[in-house]
Every structure is written in structure tokens, then in C-alpha cells.
Amino acid sequence: GTVKVQGITIKVPNPDKAYKIAKKLAKKYNLTVTRKGNTIKVE
């Protein structure tokens, strides 16, 4: 899958794990995490 952070896309082998990490970071930096299948977008 991929993770998008402010325009940066990161390929990740485990979208579930990445999503959990993204959620933690999002809370810390007051961002929104959206997930569509293997693509995770943080904005």
C-alpha cells in the first residue's frame, strides 16, 4: 500500500500497521487520516 503525507507518498507493506501509525501521528499533529484500501492519506 501507500501512505500519503502532505503530498509525499510512501509505499508500505502493511497498510493496517501503517494506518495505526498514521492515526497516532495525525492525533499528535492534528491531521486527518483517510484510508482507501492500501492507500493511506494524511492531510
Score class of each variant (00 low, 15 high):
Pro13His: 11
Leu31Ser: 02
Lys27Ala: 11
Asn30His: 09
Lys36Ala: 10
Val12Leu: 08
Leu25Tyr: 06
Lys17Gly: 04
Val33Trp: 01
Pro15His: 05
Lys24Tyr: 14
Thr34Trp: 13
Ile21Trp: 14
Ile40Asn: 06
Leu25Ser: 00
Lys24Ile: 14
Ala22Gly: 06
Ile21Gly: 01
Ile40Arg: 00
Ile21Leu: 09
Thr39Glu: 12
Lys24Val: 10
Pro13Leu: 12
Lys27Leu: 09
Lys23His: 07
Val42Asp: 00
Thr32Pro: 01
Lys4Cys: 15
Lys24Gln: 12
Gly1Trp: 14
Thr32Cys: 14
Lys17Tyr: 14
Tyr29Glu: 00
Thr2Phe: 13
Lys11Ala: 11
Lys4Thr: 14
Ile10Gly: 01
Tyr19Leu: 06
Lys28Phe: 12
Asn14Cys: 15
Asn30Phe: 12
Gly1Val: 11
Pro15Gln: 02
Lys36Trp: 10
Asn38Arg: 03
Lys24His: 12
Lys41Arg: 09
Asp16Pro: 05
Asp16Ala: 07
Thr39Asn: 09
Asn30Thr: 02
Asn14Thr: 03
Leu31Tyr: 05
Arg35Cys: 14
Gln6Trp: 15
Glu43His: 12
Val5Leu: 12
Asn30Ala: 10
Pro13Ala: 12
Lys36Gln: 13
Ile10Cys: 14
Asp16Gly: 09
Lys41Gln: 11
Lys4Ile: 15
Thr2Tyr: 14
Tyr29Asn: 00
Thr9Cys: 13
Asn14Met: 12
Lys41Phe: 15
Pro13Tyr: 08
Glu43Val: 11
Thr39Gln: 10
Tyr19Trp: 14
Ala22Phe: 15
Thr9Met: 10
Thr2Asp: 05
Pro15Asn: 05
Gln6Ala: 14
Lys41Met: 14
Lys11Phe: 15
Glu43Leu: 09
Gly7Ser: 09
Lys20Ile: 12
Lys28Arg: 08
Lys24Trp: 14
Thr9Gln: 07
Thr39Trp: 08
Lys36Pro: 02
Lys36Ser: 08
Lys23Ile: 13
Val3Cys: 15
Gly7Arg: 04
Tyr29Pro: 01
Ile40Ala: 00
Lys41Pro: 01
Asp16Arg: 06
Thr34Tyr: 03
Gly37His: 04
Val5Met: 09
Ile40Gln: 04
Thr34Cys: 14
Lys36His: 12
Lys11Thr: 11
Lys20Ala: 12
Tyr29Met: 06
Ala26His: 06
Asn14Ile: 06
Asn30Arg: 07
Thr34His: 05
Lys27Phe: 07
Lys20Cys: 14
Thr39Tyr: 11
Val33Gly: 00
Lys24Cys: 15
Lys20Tyr: 12
Gly37Thr: 01
Tyr19Gln: 01
Gly1His: 06
Lys36Glu: 14
Asn30Tyr: 11
Asn38Val: 05
Thr32Gly: 02
Ile8Ser: 03
Asn38Cys: 15
Asn14Leu: 11
Lys36Ile: 13
Arg35Asn: 06
Lys28Asn: 07
Asn14Tyr: 10
Thr39Val: 14
Lys23Glu: 07
Leu31Pro: 01
Lys17Asn: 08
Asp16Thr: 09
Lys24Ala: 14
Pro13Thr: 12
Thr9Pro: 04
Ile10Thr: 01
Val5Tyr: 15
Ile10Val: 08
Lys36Met: 10
Ala18Phe: 11
Lys17Phe: 13
Lys17Cys: 15
Pro13Gln: 10
Asn38Lys: 05
Lys36Cys: 15
Tyr29Gly: 02
Ile10Tyr: 06
Asn14Pro: 15
Lys27Tyr: 12
Lys11Trp: 15
Lys28His: 09
Asn30Cys: 13
Val42Ala: 05
Asn30Trp: 09
Ala18Asn: 00
Gln6Glu: 07
Asn38Met: 05
Arg35Trp: 12
Pro13Lys: 12
Ile10Asp: 01
Lys41Glu: 14
Lys24Glu: 10
Asp16Met: 08
Thr2Met: 13
Lys27Gln: 11
Asp16Leu: 09
Lys4Gln: 12
Thr34Met: 07
Asp16Ile: 07
Thr32Trp: 06
Lys11Arg: 13
Lys28Ser: 07
Lys24Asp: 08
Pro15Thr: 12
Gly37Tyr: 03
Lys41Asp: 06
Gly7Trp: 12
Asp16Cys: 15
Gly37Ser: 03
Lys28Gln: 07
Thr34Asn: 04
Thr32Asn: 10
Thr34Lys: 11
Lys41Leu: 15
Tyr19Phe: 06
Ile10Lys: 02
Lys4Val: 14
Thr32Gln: 08
Ile21Tyr: 09
Pro15Asp: 03
Lys4Glu: 14
Lys27Met: 09
Leu25Glu: 00
Ala26Ile: 08
Pro15Ile: 15
Glu43Ile: 12
Leu31Gly: 01
Pro13Arg: 12
Asn14Glu: 06
Leu31Asn: 03
